[in-house]
Nucleic acid binder design. Structure first.
Lengths: 202, 202
DNA sequence: CCTACCGATCGGTAGG
DNA sequence: CCTACCGATCGGTAGG
């Protein structure tokens, strides 16, 4: 691991626990065992580290969903695979994911705009799968955008409690999330879905 | 509105958009149209503002779930009402909720510990409802703690996109969230729930 | 609520 | 990678 990568990893961990603004270059230097000034031999600025982390993670999420959608299949299949892919990226990059999800607002323009556009593009991928599923009758949702955001927020909380040594593997977490989000908690379909459960009982 | 309340509200909005650490007392003073030193006539420290916001919101959430559970009913009824109560608090206190959810880590001990204990107690209320529903067959979940966290994360994302002038009212948002979380996206029950959908078709 | 100011710390640079 | 240091800004206080 190069010194630059080491700086980035250490900074990512600090950004996650203390937040970007509350992490000083002296904090980072101490964690690395060097002087603050020495960090600047490897990076240009504090924000450069944040930029690298945010855009590397954006790339990881896109590559993961690309792979997940490539195999095609039903909307249900694609959504399950997209969920699994997202959870894989989250759990394999716990610290960087937290920074990506919570510290992006400290990016300055024009990169802040680029980041937000990427995030919207990524959310649109989930919206598209949901739209396809609604169209062919696999899904029933109140609102496609609303559904996509609720799903992603359910996934994104994972990084706050996931522990590699915990009892659930990333694959099991993904499976449980798919189960909860696709089928819900209820043992019986109700309310809006009464139409469908009624058909089922005929 | 007293000056102290005015300071708290203005600070809350700044904490939400810039983050606690990145918001300076000079930023706050400028937003209020006074000098930074003058703020200290009304409050003791920057952290005091954060403390007041976090613990006031904790109280709001507890009062809301207390009222939601008081009416009793099935686990489904109670969960729906708890969801609606949570969303009401979130939407009526958009900025303060964001601070409560994201800036609490800047609290220092011993209040940080108190905060975390309260949050766990609140999550336990949702876990309890879920446990009751699993016990009497209303719900089927992979894991109770996991289910409670997934539900709460789905709810907590609301503050990032909710706009009072938007097309959905808080009550509609709550209804849509209940629908999604209780019944899921799928028009048919699958996987783990096959047991139940099978019984339904007999 | 202001002026005047404090010591501490910030991100970052110069020069080696 | 370090020493030495920069101007700017931080949260907060004294005294009115």
């Amino acid at each position: 691991m190069s010194r630059k990568e080491q700086i980035e990893r250490t900074a990512t961990a600090l950004f996650k626990t203390k937040g970007y603004s509350a992490t000083s270059m002296r904090d980072l230097a101490t964690a690395l065992g060097i002087e603050a000034a020495s960090i600047y031999s490897h990076i240009k600025s504090k924000e450069e580290i944040l930029q690298r982390v945010c855009f590397r993670m954006a790339q990881e999420f896109f590559e993961a969903i690309d792979a997940a959608e490539e195999a095609g299949g039903s909307a249900t299949d694609r959504l399950k695979r997209a969920i699994a892919a997202h959870v894989q990226v989250l759990t394999h990059n716990k610290e960087a994911s937290a920074v990506f999800l919570h510290e992006w607002r400290h990016l300055s323009e024009p990169l802040l705009g680029t980041y937000l556009a990427l995030r919207d593009k990524y959310e649109a991928r989930f919206r598209e799968i949901i739209r396809a599923g609604v169209k062919n009758g696999e899904f029933a949702v109140p609102d496609e955008k609303f559904a996509a955001l609720t799903i992603l927020s359910g996934l994104n909380w994972t990084h706050t409690w996931y522990k590699p040594e915990g009892k659930m593997t990333p694959a099991e977490i993904a499976e449980n999330l798919s189960e909860m989000l696709l089928n819900g908690l209820s043992t019986k379909k109700q309310a809006l879905h009464d139409t469908y459960s009624h058909l089922n009982t005929i």
